[in-house]
Computed example of a mutant assay.
Amino acid sequence: MTKSELVDIIAEKQEGITRREAEVVVNTIFSVIGDALSDGGHVELRGFGSFTTKERNERLGRNPKTGESVMVPAKVVPHFKPGKDLRERVDRAL
């Protein structure tokens, strides 16, 4: 599902909300989550999951085109951990 498909579904399911209003809501939610993570915080949505950041250490990688070894610098990456309800829901669907 893409972001625009999500916006369309929200606009269809919620009477009285336009597609434009649904788009503002979705963009605001994503923006708030991104801001919280970039500030070093975390976001927990009970029943859905939690967004946190994880530090990755510097490591030796390889350029796939040339085969040359290169150092990949340390970095901080976003991480999502699904909640129990979401895990169970997905497991039942399969």
Results as ranks from 00 to 15, higher is better:
90 V>H: 04
23 E>D: 12
20 R>P: 04
82 P>I: 13
16 G>L: 00
43 V>L: 11
9 I>E: 15
79 H>D: 12
90 V>Q: 06
83 G>E: 11
36 A>W: 02
89 R>A: 15
51 F>W: 09
93 A>C: 10
31 S>N: 13
1 M>Q: 15
66 T>M: 03
90 V>A: 09
9 I>Q: 03
81 K>Q: 02
2 T>G: 04
18 T>E: 02
92 R>L: 09
65 K>L: 13
68 E>N: 06
38 S>K: 15
9 I>V: 13
59 R>M: 04
69 S>D: 13
93 A>I: 10
72 V>Y: 05
24 V>D: 12
20 R>G: 08
30 F>A: 04
16 G>M: 00
27 N>Q: 11
77 V>A: 10
21 E>P: 04
59 R>K: 10
13 K>L: 02
80 F>W: 03
25 V>P: 03
81 K>F: 05
64 P>F: 06
71 M>S: 14
7 V>C: 09
80 F>N: 02
17 I>R: 01
13 K>V: 01
87 R>D: 08
22 A>W: 14
55 E>N: 04
92 R>P: 01
30 F>S: 04
42 H>R: 15
75 K>P: 09
72 V>N: 00
12 E>C: 14
42 H>Q: 11
53 T>Q: 10
50 S>M: 05
20 R>K: 11
85 D>N: 08
60 L>R: 12
40 G>H: 07
13 K>P: 04
61 G>V: 01
34 G>N: 13
31 S>Q: 13
75 K>C: 01
81 K>T: 14
72 V>P: 02
93 A>D: 03
90 V>N: 04
59 R>A: 03
75 K>E: 07
91 D>S: 07
8 D>F: 02
33 I>P: 04
83 G>N: 10
21 E>W: 01
29 I>T: 11
94 L>C: 03
83 G>F: 12
53 T>L: 01
8 D>V: 04
63 N>D: 09
72 V>S: 03
81 K>V: 14
76 V>D: 03
31 S>I: 08
78 P>F: 13
13 K>R: 05
31 S>R: 15
15 E>M: 08
44 E>M: 05
71 M>F: 00
47 G>F: 08
86 L>G: 03
94 L>Y: 09
73 P>W: 07
